[in-house]
Design a protein around this nucleic acid. Sequence first.
DNA 1: CTGTTAGCGCCTTCAC
DNA 2: GTGAAGGCGCTAACAG
Lengths: 348, 348
Amino acid sequence: MPFESGDGAGTATMKDVARLAGVSTATVSRTLIKPELVSTRTRERVMKAVAEAGYTPNSLARNLRKMQTRSIIVVVQDITNPFYPEILRGAEQTAQAFGYTVLMGNTDNDPVRERAYLELVQSRRADGMILLTGRLPAQGTDSVAVERERLPPLVFACEHLPDLGLPTVRIDNAEAARMAMRHLFELGHERIAHIAGPLNRIISVDRLAGYREALTERGLPPEPALVADGDFTFNSGVEAASRLLALAHRPTAIFAANDESAIGAIQAIKSQGLSVPGDISVIGFDNILFAAATDPALTTIGQPRQEIGRRAMAIMLDLLDGKSPPLGDVILPVELVIRRSTGPRPLA
Amino acid sequence: MPFESGDGAGTATMKDVARLAGVSTATVSRTLIKPELVSTRTRERVMKAVAEAGYTPNSLARNLRKMQTRSIIVVVQDITNPFYPEILRGAEQTAQAFGYTVLMGNTDNDPVRERAYLELVQSRRADGMILLTGRLPAQGTDSVAVERERLPPLVFACEHLPDLGLPTVRIDNAEAARMAMRHLFELGHERIAHIAGPLNRIISVDRLAGYREALTERGLPPEPALVADGDFTFNSGVEAASRLLALAHRPTAIFAANDESAIGAIQAIKSQGLSVPGDISVIGFDNILFAAATDPALTTIGQPRQEIGRRAMAIMLDLLDGKSPPLGDVILPVELVIRRSTGPRPLA
DNA sequence: CTGTTAGCGCCTTCAC
DNA sequence: GTGAAGGCGCTAACAG
């Protein structure tokens, strides 16, 4: 068999190496960890024995001894979402620089699996957890207040739980939404619709709030019919746009809560023979990879995703180092990415 | 502080629970693992103590004892690629059903990081590894033949290393490419270009081979100028298509080695004022999520991605269970997904 | 510079 | 049905 089976029978241990090199296990350990503490001669002997035995240190044992794993779990709720990868990449950069490994957990929004990952950390299989999920894995069944639980090192990114005081790195979603709206105002639009995200997530709520505030600031009355439900998916964008287009007095611009639903909206608009941005302008949110590849290319709000990942990981490493996290949320700036899907309000 | 710092000082151990319940640690252990071996009365006492102490078993210690972690690492080389998530999801389904946890590792095609994940397994932090990367993490620096290395349980998915005899789950890429070509032939196309993937990956080579074989079968001479280099990215699709369009006698159809580059190709074609499929048909490969959302929607080859993930994980669990893997690669069927980007050859 | 010793927290015989 | 004891593989004092 080209590989060993999982029984561990044939695995060399430090004792084997020690015997082979004619030294104690302590010396083998030292050679591996702090070679400078060992004489050149023994070092060579040990290294030779290590190679000969095909020895790999068992980190389970090492970690048990040191009570740390040097790995961090990043949990997302939908790995399919093209928004996350860049955040993960940022987190990995920082982690790698400090000798940490990043493991990713996918929950599919399933509380059972969220809980499983939390337990992985509580049971010391990882040192900490970065949550991109916007909620705390609910403990047990009884309703003890979450704050009173013994939580392992935890950092939120993007999403956040207000009033819990957990360290968080994110953008100002409401302000970003206002930025999108101001762009549309400048193009002359006044009748602007919003395709919302799932309203059980705080980022959706914040974006909707920003939309409303922008209208108010501009002296325009928010009109309930112009807010369409959505859930961040392509299909929900298609459906929401169809509903908005069926309105007696339809909007001249749509601000979608994320790019995926914006792309769905564009699809729906075009399939009705209308033009984007000729008849209706569309602006998205997130600046995912494919936003540049749609037709027309999508105007959107860009988040500094790598930076979010880097900062979240940096805070995590500080936490593990005994330093205290920043007071209050770390808010990172966004940018308006103007492409082709927004244009002047049609004359009509 | 709302969470404990990493020093582990305040963490309850089994000894604490035992003291609290007035029993031995052995009894606590049994209560947690095999409650039926313990009297109801003691069980209750122990459970109460567990709750009171806020005890979570330390899996580091447990795993060391049992020499297994019940977690599997799935390694991808580019987490940004929308192709992987569904495979991972399939793997998770199977893993979860057997009480295993899936952790995901991203390598960004960096050998150092590939190696780091391998070491995670070799050092027993995970029981096995499923590779979606198409190469074996190179060991050390010396060039000992890979086959002679001590490899942990390993399964390949999608990619594979020929002649190494490692268990693999994949599709027949050459045959799938022929299927794409036959679709174009049926629409009357004869002058068909190919946008290749990175040729250091076997799947790209196989798809290119299938393209060539299909032409030959059809009695058409393969023309080197009709094969454009690419690397699976959107931009490489744009560039490759631009080069193909500049040809004196340009193709009437393009078969791209993956969807992302196909979408780039469509973009390039449209930006030159040509129509898809009016002037040029485009077919992709993989059927990623966004393939349905492009304009026109992309005709492509669909892989049974969840099933690939499920099968790979099933083989892994068999391996860990001491069973031997299937002889030869497991080949799963593909499907032709016909959408709007392919049509009859233009008359001209 | 190197060896001895003593655990890290848990599970598992083996007695009782 | 329960307790005592040993050890998984490794590292960190402490001697020498």
